Amino acid sequence: MTYPDSFTQDEAKSLVDSADRQSIKVFTQKYLNRSQYGMGSGKAEEIKEFVKESGAEQVIVDERLTSRQIYNLEKLTGVQVIDRERLILDIFHSRATTTEAKLQIELAEVKYEIPRVRENARLTSGSERPGKGGMGEYVVDVKFRELKRRMSFIKEKLEGAKTARELYHQQRMKDNMPVISLVGYTSSGKTTLFNMLTDEHRETSSSLFTTLSTTTRALKVGGTDALITDTVGFISRLPTYMIDAFKSTLEESLTADVVLLLIDAAEDTQTIRIKYSTCLRVLEELKVDRSRVLVIFTKYDKVGSEEAISVIAKDLGIQSPMAVSSKTGYGIHKLKGIIGQCLGSKSVFSKAVAKNA
């Protein structure tokens, strides 16, 4: 169940595929914030009948639902209901490999569960208090404290990882080692470009969130020794608590000397516009210095026209667009030259781009 516009439908399908589930039918509705089911009651009944006829095992709703809405929809359809946030968390679980990434996901899990604890208790146990004379302690209170304790423990562990990273950053500053950070919408080609620049062989996939943790490697550009990092991809309608949970992963972007914001040039203009706006919002939330951001159009081999990319860039208000193909190597030498000049002179990127255009 998702919204009717093509971008949202495509992204919802990609999320379902990335979670190793198979979508057998897509229902759409303009509003998914109705009180009882999230969707209208007529659409909910329609889904109920389809589930009964098809034998579908789950209903996935591409929006945040309250515990009550999930409860009502599960009671109506007789199958498990998963909302957008739960689906993204499931994907995160399947992709996490490092200890820190797993901790970040667990923190996001706890933040997802906390507001639902009390409502779940009301739905499943009514209003009675346990214990003698009804004066015992609510089970929900015990669960709430457990989640709070778990959150404190995870934050403590992540703080230790952050401290280690800050020591590493301080050492880097002493060594005067500049950092280049790759950021962008999920599946924009960050890891493919990272592999091209570093001769690495990190996993790449069309699935969303293939990369969840930051990987840093050495890179020589324009005679300068630098470090380049590959980070988790952005996505639209990612709740604040999930961005907060991954801030430690994205912190390299805050201090990077050059931030390469990657845009998939092979997509349609409307999709590019939405994804670019989402990336800018996330960078703004992370308080990344926009003067350090260099926009790169990837997958040039699928476009094959500088003019087409110039039209897209003009629509987005981007001056002197830079295009690369990690598959063919197109534009890579030029990109390294621009990065080298930016690192060498610490000048505003637009000057470096204009000189190399």
Score class of each variant (00 low, 15 high):
M1S: 09
F7K: 03
Q9F: 01
K13Y: 07
D17S: 11
Q22A: 15
Q22G: 09
F27H: 00
Q29D: 06
N33C: 09
Q36I: 13
K48D: 04
A56R: 03
Q58E: 10
I60Q: 09
L76P: 09
V79H: 05
V81C: 05
V81E: 00
E85V: 13
I91D: 06
S94L: 07
S94H: 08
A96W: 07
T99F: 10
K102D: 03
Q104K: 04
L107T: 08
I114L: 14
R118H: 12
E119V: 15
R122W: 05
R122A: 12
S125Y: 15
E137H: 13
Y138K: 14
V139M: 09
V139Q: 13
K143Y: 13
K155F: 00
L158F: 10
T163Y: 04
A164S: 13
E166R: 15
L167D: 10
H169C: 02
N176P: 04
S181K: 12
S181W: 12
S181P: 12
L182G: 11
G184F: 05
T186P: 04
S187I: 01
M196D: 06
H201R: 11
S205L: 01
S205Q: 08
T224K: 05
L227H: 09
T231H: 13
V232W: 05
R237I: 02
L238W: 07
Y241F: 15
M242H: 12
F246V: 02
K247S: 10
E251G: 06
T255D: 07
T255Q: 07
A256W: 08
V258R: 09
V258W: 01
L261N: 00
A265T: 00
A265N: 04
D268G: 04
I274D: 14
K275R: 15
T278K: 00
R281V: 02
V282N: 07
L283D: 03
E285D: 13
E285W: 07
L286A: 08
L286C: 09
V288D: 02
V288M: 05
R290V: 14
R292A: 04
A308I: 01
G317F: 03
Q319W: 06
P321L: 08
V324M: 07
K327W: 10
G331Y: 09
K336P: 04
L343F: 04
L343C: 10
G344N: 11
S347V: 10
F349N: 13
K355V: 11
